[in-house]
Design a protein around this nucleic acid. Sequence first.
RNA 1: GCUCCCGUAGUCUAGUCCGGUCAAGGAUCCGUGGCCUUCGACCACGAAACCCGGGUUCAAAUCCCGGCGGGAGCACCA
Length: 508
Amino acid sequence: MNRLAELGGPEVERVKAPSSTTGDFPELAGALPGKVVLRLAPFPSGALHIGNARMLFVNQFYRERYGGKLLLVFDDTIGTEEKRVEPEFFDLILGDLDLAGVRPDATYYKSDRIASFYPWARRVIDRGAAYVCTCPAELLRANRASGTACPERSQTVAESAEAWQQMLDGDFAPGEAVLRLRTDLHDPDPAFRDRVLFRISDVDHPRVGRKFRVWPLLEFSWAVDDIELKVTHVIRGKDLVMEDRMERFLWDLLGIEGPSFLHWGLLRVREAKVSKSKSYREVKDGVYDGWADPRTWSLRSLDRRGISMGALRAFTLSFGLSLADIEVPAETLYAENRKRIDATTVRRSFVPDPVRVEVEGYPSGLTEVTLANHPDLPDLGRRSVAAGPVFYLARKDVLRCLGSEVRLKDLLNVRLPESAPRGDEPIRATFTSRENRRLPRLQWVGALGAVPVEVLGIEGEHTPGLGERALLTSPPRAIVQFERVGFVRFDENWSPGATPVRVVYGHP
RNA sequence: GCUCCCGUAGUCUAGUCCGGUCAAGGAUCCGUGGCCUUCGACCACGAAACCCGGGUUCAAAUCCCGGCGGGAGCACCA
């Protein structure tokens, strides 16, 4: 009925008008209210980022629509060298879910469940549908490509069962044997031909150590867990459609009715090049400022920038469940966020790359001015700003307006000199009038009230500048708008009064 | 190459299943004006689209056929 309320997340009440388009969300096949069981399956290799948002919010959305359960299942099988499971990521992801407002009804760890996969493997073997292959990986791949059967493909059930037991007993080293499904060597999709179900690894797992050597691959583990955990609908990206087919194949083989599948297409945010493995390296090496570094585009970095999870959710859900692969500019997310924060955000003055300007003929006695904290909302109060004959203006502003009359916003008008300043030579401007005229309006900070500010930007760059004194009293994590610059959020680890004032840039 | 998916304004999306109410709606972006102290917000106005070609039909964005274009997957990763 009320699509916006469904989509908007917690802050929706504050949004004045319908904002985002509502994407299309089809009904789940055969879904019964209160009986739907969905799952979130993050791989613990880094903080959740903007690219994971769709998984989170789409599943949460359907859980809300049907009133069912949402399970969190850490997909922490053994991974690879490049995709490593690291112990700290479990809590990191739990924290990210909390931040996103996604509260799973139960949490599972695949690594706890490894042993329960073995009997299922045995059932598949007993049906004559799997065999132990000892081909080297390269040969296996080559055979698959050419549709050639390796000698072991014709194993009897008893032989397969014995070899499988040898795998479990540790008779094979990593890479020496795998359990493969017998599909069709001439399947049109080469990837589907006799896929590997289990492999051997003796890598130390952060949760279960070396307790298991035989690890299931994603499709098999899910074919089992979707049944054992009674998942009713699997909603995931379309990059995993081949896995659907594998799961169905296994269920058909065992005569089981499994959940149904639903997918969405690839969603890229143009500005965000996300890579968990790159972020992991940079965080570990200290190049990034932790997992909240803006360059990670992690949920926590967005939060740090003052982008609300409600805005992210609305943004994410606005694309519906379209199977098209899309690329969206971050501006769309920013617009969504702006709608939420603009009306509650105080205005402050900030001058990047400041240059000193002395005003000749400055009216004596004009030492301060009282300004509204928000141009349209008197309720947000006023503050007093120190003014004086000496100001700091943004170099860019000054250079752009040389020789012209400009207005120091909310204060008075001056004429800037004709020529650019040389070196550190102070700029001399001339007072013209106080009347409010249509002139270019420049941000300023009075020399007496100026406090140093450092803005952390989206590319991880630090922009120093000067801001007005009132900034010193903002609480950490407060969001303010630097007029004509954009919305910024005070950093969590900044204490009021400390300089430089540390803020993180959010968006225009 | 093989398998699958997708083509509505610059971008995203509604509509496509069940053809007419769609001379196509919304968001964002862009432009203009207003509000007269933000390059923000808000208000008003404006620009801007059914991939192409056939067919069926009184009627096609919607159905059929054929092209073309874009994307994803193709691991002993998840």
